[in-house]
Design a protein around this nucleic acid. Structure first.
Lengths: 233, 233
DNA sequence: CCGTACACGTGATAC
DNA sequence: TGTATCACGTGTACG
């Protein structure tokens, strides 16, 4: 089976591969017109493939939208769009404030050349027509654990490998979390690539602490995620 | 020809100019409540109404997203999401440019009067905001720059190499600093070894931004060190 | 006529 | 348990 309809929701919560093409293929009855099912079936098949492509495109776009928007609370389609709207409004407000602050700073600096440069920037023009609607909401992203592996590589050394999604302030919160655990860290490496975050830690610990360490990290991350302010809209 | 259309929410819908060319007709009371197959039919009816509400919510959100994103070319669902993604990325770039303009302006006037203004800037407020979630206001150690090298490794790629001393919360502050700069970071790697901290960043930038980037990082770190007195917000 | 885009109802699935 | 979301195939309108 090729799993045509596989999308990221199903990749997160995989479902079993059921055969969806059972009875509709040879289905030609319906009060159909006088056309035999030769060209009609071809048309239906084309439309079917097109519709699949359309759905896939929509889901991919939605996935990409989720990737560029922090402050994702739920993985719903509607929630993703709602969070994107809120985030755009937050960006509008922030830009407005930063721009006003920049102008204030410019006004103290009495160089007319830079003032003209600023006011002629396209950013300034875009700010002019942007409207603010609400106060700045605190953006807070949940840390999504994609992979967590704690293994034992020596006599008293434990290797922690953590892969998680990279969103806004994810690195900051991760570092805070690791520092708060008061571990005996020998070396630590954090690499950000694309939309993922790769953490590698060598920790001085005993072998029997592996399970506890894994649970510690998981609970610390989930505790961080539960700190977020409820967004009610 | 049944055409069970959704129309009662269509009348509520505030946007009247365009409706994706869907088929909207009057709602014909089709499903009967007096079916002999009682509970199953009721379940199906509930599911049907829920699905209609879900679709309506999704479409409303999509319209709202279209409303906050300017320069919508096509009214496609996929195009609306695509334009929103591009717009968010544009906003990110603009924010980054504005930040660099701010930093450049701050470096231009080195009077102490403007230093106070700098500490009230949105850049530092964002730092304080992200730090304020724990209420930690202990005096922290200053970040000591041991080595900073910004070089040009490609057409639009800049390599940043930063080595500094590793003290308490150095990684956290460093990550906050890098995130607040709103750079277009391709990959970032932070390695802690012994008492030193090694940062390697690949940033999408132009060649002429190298000097600005170096100055940005230096001033941001030194500003972080100068911040340590009044964090209480 | 053909391709695109949409809404619709339905069965399956996760919580 | 019911109640959410989702993917799917289909009919249909528009260019």
């Amino acid at each position: 089976m090729e799993n045509i309809g596989q999308s990221y929701w199903e990749s997160i919560h995989p479902i079993e591969d059921y055969s969806w093409g059972g009875l509709e293929e040879t289905f030609s009855s319906h009060y159909d017109s006088s056309s035999p099912d030769g060209p009609h079936s071809a048309t239906v098949s084309k439309n079917l493939a097109s519709e699949r492509n359309r759905r896939k495109r929509l889901n991919d776009r939605l996935f990409a939208l989720r990737a560029v928007v922090p402050n994702i609370t739920k993985m719903d389609k509607a929630s993703i769009i709602k969070d994107a709207i809120e985030y755009i409004q937050i960006l509008h407000d922030q830009e407005r404030m930063i721009q006003s602050e920049l102008i204030e700073l410019e006004s103290r600096n009495l160089e007319p050349e830079s003032l003209d440069l600023c006011q002629n920037s396209e950013f300034f023009k875009s700010i002019e027509r942007s409207k603010n609607k609400r106060g700045v909401n605190q953006a807070f992203d949940p840390i999504e654990i994609l992979e967590l592996n704690v293994s034992h590589v020596g006599e008293k050394t434990v290797l922690v490998n953590l892969k998680c999604s990279k969103r806004r302030d994810t690195i900051v919160k991760l570092c805070e979390m690791f520092e708060s655990l008061k571990l005996n860290i020998i070396t630590a490496s954090i690499s950000a690539f694309s939309q993922s975050l790769f953490n590698t830690l060598f920790i001085q610990a005993e072998k029997e602490e592996i399970g506890i360490l894994k649970m510690q990290i998981e609970t610390a991350i989930s505790a961080l995620n539960h700190l977020q302010t409820p967004i009610t809209m």
